[in-house]
Structure formats: structure tokens, C-alpha cells
């Protein structure tokens, strides 16, 4: 008897939850992975996806990043339709890329383009960890290289937000060579005396950390972002030692002299604007009736 009641109840609770999915939009509430506080996604959104309670910076995609960084409607995207091929004919790679294209609506793990920050012109590249872990294959390398070409041609600064697990394994040595390719392009930017600001966001590791992300004239990072060359597990296995909790965090890197500043997401745009101003970045012509930024 009692068992019946329980089984019915279980049955009873299952159906509304299925039905509920339609009524309550998925992701209405978000739980902070750091302090476990549950909050309205809408409120979190208004706070640039920074936890109100503990200050944890939630991972955001390229769309929000561009929105938070650039002046409204100032973004012109480059090479939007560029997609990866399959240089090694690696089993399952094409299918996986296609799946990520469908699920993210992006064609690759990076978006590049031209925009303004408080009226200052810049070429910007934003990696997106939602696509193949933000890994760097041929397309990421090529788009960065072309974005740098554009910055050189327009004589404007280059700003890159990294978010990547490193080189893309499915493109093998071709992806390894993108480290050299992007660094070679950055050297040209450097030769022209143009500014490069690298903003490392969670995560920036492996081949991305060991190439362009570490090569900014100014290296910034978001709080708590994981930044490092080798993975924590590999290091622990190699040296047979447990690593401190804050190992490879942005704060750890700051302490060890690898970063100029750790900047809160709310302050990032202002920080970039100040840097652009201090480096005499060219300003876009103001439209009529527009106020000073």
C-alpha cells in the first residue's frame, strides 16, 4: 500500500517536470559553480555574468564578449564563413566540427573583425570555448593572421581575447604550426610599432598560451582564469606532487610576473579604452549628434 503511494508519487512528479520544460525556459536560473548560489540568469546577464555574491566570472561566448567590449553596432566581422577542412582526414573530425557549427551557430572557434571602443578604432579577435573547446586549428590561425594584416593596413591596435584549450589535436602538426604562423604575424605588427593587447580569459592553455596569448605589449586576464602551458594533471603526474589550488590562475600568473593586470569584467572596456587612448589609437569619425564617449 505504502509502496503504491510512493510509486504513484514518483510517477506524479515526473510528468510535470517534463511538461515544465516547455513552460519554464531552460536556464532561467543559474547556479554559480564557485559559491553555489542560485540566481536568475537574467540578473546574472545584467551583471555581465559575474556572480553577485562571490565575483566569479562565468564563461561567456564571443557574442557577449563583443557586446561588452565594443561600441554598439560598431562590429564588422571578417571571414565569417571560413571553416576548417580536414588535413589529416582524422576520423570523426568533420562530423564533430559540423555538430559544433549546428549547436553554436558559429563556423569556428574564433570571430574577428573591426570595431570601436569608446570611439577608438581597433581590430578585435574573440575566441569562443564553445566551439571545439576553443582549440586552434587552421581557421583560428588564418583568421588571426588576417586580422593582424588588417590592423597593419589600417594602422590600428589589435586586441585579442583568448579562450582555448590549446592546439586542435585533430589537425595534428598543422595546428601546431599555427602557433608559429600567428607569432610570425604578430612580429610584423610589432615591427610596425602597433599595439597588441592580449586579454586571457578562462581557459587559456597549451599552444594558445604558448604563442600569441603571451605576446601582448600588454597582457591582461580576467580574475580566476586558468592560464598555463601544461595541464594540471600532467604536471602532478610528472612531478608527483599536489599543486596548490590557485596554481595557473590569473592571480598566480600576476604574482609570478606573467601578467600586467588582472582586470574585473566590469572594468575591462574602460581599461582597454584607456590603453587605446594612451597609445594614440586613431579615432573613428563621430556621427552627427553623438556625444563624447
Amino acid at each position: 500500500m505504502i509502496r503504491d503511494i510512493f510509486s504513484r508519487k514518483r510517477h506524479y512528479t515526473t510528468i510535470p517536470s517534463e511538461k515544465g520544460k516547455k513552460d519554464v525556459p531552460a536556464g532561467l536560473m543559474t547556479k554559480c559553480p564557485e559559491c553555489k548560489t542560485i540566481m536568475y540568469t537574467k540578473e546574472l546577464n545584467q551583471n555581465m555574468f559575474v556572480c553577485d555574491h562571490c565575483g566569479h566570472h562565468h564563461r561567456i561566448g564571443s557574442t557577449l564578449r563583443l557586446k561588452y567590449t565594443l561600441d554598439e553596432n560598431s562590429f564588422t566581422e571578417f571571414n565569417e564563413g571560413m571553416i576548417s577542412q580536414d588535413p589529416l582526414t582524422f576520423p570523426g573530425y568533420k562530423e564533430k566540427s559540423e555538430k559544433d557549427r549546428q549547436s553554436t551557430g558559429m563556423n569556428e572557434a574564433i570571430r574577428t573583425g573591426y570595431g570601436t571602443i569608446g570611439g577608438y578604432k581597433a581590430v578585435i579577435a574573440v575566441m569562443d570555448a564553445g566551439f571545439r573547446m576553443g582549440s586552434m586549428g587552421s581557421v583560428v590561425g588564418e583568421k588571426i593572421s588576417r586580422a593582424i594584416d588588417c590592423a597593419i593596413e589600417e594602422e590600428v591596435p589589435f586586441i585579442l581575447f583568448s579562450a582555448s584549450g590549446g592546439a586542435r589535436m585533430q589537425e595534428g602538426v598543422v595546428s601546431l604550426m599555427q602557433m608559429a604562423k600567428t607569432s610570425t604575424s604578430l612580429n610584423r605588427l610589432h615591427e610596425k610599432g602597433l599595439l597588441f593587447i592580449s586579454v586571457m580569459t578562462h581557459p587559456t592553455t597549451g599552444g594558445v598560451s604558448a604563442s600569441f596569448a603571451s605576446l601582448g605589449d600588454v597582457n591582461l586576464a580576467e580574475p580566476q582564469a586558468l592560464i598555463g602551458f601544461a595541464g594540471r594533471r600532467i604536471i602532478e603526474q610528472t612531478i608527483r606532487e599536489q599543486l596548490p589550488d590557485d596554481f595557473q590562475s590569473a592571480e598566480f600568473l600576476l604574482e609570478h610576473g606573467q601578467l600586467d593586470q588582472v582586470v574585473h569584467r566590469h572594468e575591462l572596456k574602460k581599461t582597454l579604452l584607456t590603453l587605446l587612448k594612451l597609445h594614440n589609437a586613431p579615432q573613428a569619425k563621430k556621427k552627427e549628434g553623438e556625444d563624447d564617449a
Binding site: 602557433m179 608559429a180 607569432s183 610570425t184 604578430l186 612580429n187 610589432h190 615591427e191 598560451s209 604558448a210 604563442s211 600569441f212 596569448a213 603571451s214 605576446l215 592560464i227 598555463g228 602551458f229 601544461a230 595541464g231 600532467i234 604536471i235 610528472t238 612531478i239 606532487e241 599543486l243 596554481f247 595557473q248 609570478h256 610576473g257 606573467q258
Partner: peptide, 26 residues
């Protein structure tokens, strides 16, 4: 490969490799 160790990370393994890539290209 480059050594995956604690001190290597502390002293900037990523930056050291990246710097060589950039400088060698010039």
C-alpha cells in the same frame, strides 16, 4: 616536449616558447 613542471609554469614556460616563436620569425 617542454617540461611540464611547477617551476616551469612559474617562470613562464608559455611566454618563453611564445617569445622564441615571435623572435625567430624576425
Amino acid at each position: 616536449g617542454a617540461f611540464p613542471g611547477k617551476e616551469a609554469e612559474e617562470r613562464g614556460q608559455s611566454e618563453a616558447i611564445a617569445r622564441n616563436l615571435l623572435e625567430m620569425s624576425g
